[in-house]
């Protein structure tokens, strides 16, 4: 199968600064891919080149078989973009905005279905100006998925959401992924990448530092685990490459239920922070 997105040797410079400094990437159809990286790492520039909003300096890019620099109406019909804000709609209601937006697509989703799926039913006839931040964000998403896109770009979609709204949003994205929509997500929330993404890429200083499943990123699966337990009223921890054997040994010694047992692996956040640490000073100087 041809990839949904192919990137080879992508470069973009602003003056002396290489914002994107040679990125190679393949994203398969139906995949949910998360791009992580500190602010100023080249994440947004990369995504904006893929969306056709920025012109690259070098490299090859193919998105749904088309170079986004030459995007036409048929290509835009297959793309959904959830930008960072839904400004300019304050004077309309979500239903008015969605009904009008639906008219430009060849095979749009049913507006009422989209309103229900994004949890906007109760606010559908209120002015957008009166919606909360989270509700506005859901309208952004509603506008992004309205055209039944084959490929959906989500730019930090849940910034400012409360935990419940974030879970609801993840369920919505999961259902889109289940329908076969390819999703390219950028986020600052590591648990979001872990919950949604099939693979994650970490960008810093314009380069792709790591690319893997969230479970295996940066050798995470093979790293040593920390086993913790309570014995004689004190807490013990042990770092080990063989946690299962340790737990068996503990169970044999302390009975079938080891008191206060915990087994920790490095979280995605630990791995991520470790990966970008060497690049942080560089990024700060540039920003």
């Amino acid at each position: 199968m041809t990839p949904a997105i192919t990137v080879r040797g992508l470069r973009k410079t602003y003056g002396d600064l290489a914002a994107v400094d040679g990125i190679d990437l393949d994203i398969e159809p139906g995949e949910c891919f998360a791009l992580l990286g500190p602010n100023g790492a080249g994440k947004s520039t990369t995504v904006e080149i893929l969306e056709g909003f920025r012109v690259r300096d070098a490299g090859e890019v193919s998105v749904l078989g088309t170079d986004p620099a030459n995007a036409d109406r048929a290509w835009r019909d297959r793309i959904g973009i959830v930008l960072q804000s839904c400004a300019g709609l304050d004077l309309l209601t979500p239903r008015e905005a969605l009904r009008s937006a639906a008219k430009v697509y060849r095979k749009p989703r049913d507006v009422e279905e989209v309103i229900a799926a994004t949890g906007l039913s109760e606010k559908a006839d209120d002015r957008v100006a009166k919606l909360s931040g989270g509700q506005r964000r859901r309208l952004d998403v509603a506008l992004g998925i309205l055209g039944r896109p084959d490929l959906l770009f989500l730019d930090e979609p849940t910034t400012g959401f409360d935990p419940k709204a974030r879970r609801d949003f993840w369920t919505l994205i999961d259902s889109l992924a289940a329908e076969g929509t390819t999703i390219l997500l950028t986020t600052h929330y590591l648990e979001e990448a872990e919950a949604l993404a099939d693979r994650v890429g970490v960008i810093a200083a314009g380069r792709l530092l790591a690319l893997d499943t969230p479970q295996a990123l940066g050798g995470r699966a093979s790293q040593e685990a920390v086993v913790g337990w309570e014995e004689n009223g004190t807490r013990h921890t042990l770092t080990t490459a063989t946690p299962t054997a340790q737990v068996s040994a503990l169970a044999a010694r302390l009975g079938p239920e080891v008191p206060g047992l915990t087994i920790g692996r490095p979280t995605l956040e630990d791995v991520y922070l470790g990966l970008i640490a060497p690049h942080l000073t560089v990024t700060e100087e540039n920003s």
Partner: peptide, 15 residues
């Protein structure tokens, strides 16, 4: 205003 607040960009992202 529409250029500044991203309305034009949002419209440009649609067909």
């Amino acid at each position: 205003t529409e250029r500044d607040d991203g309305t034009l960009r949002r419209l440009r992202a649609t067909p």
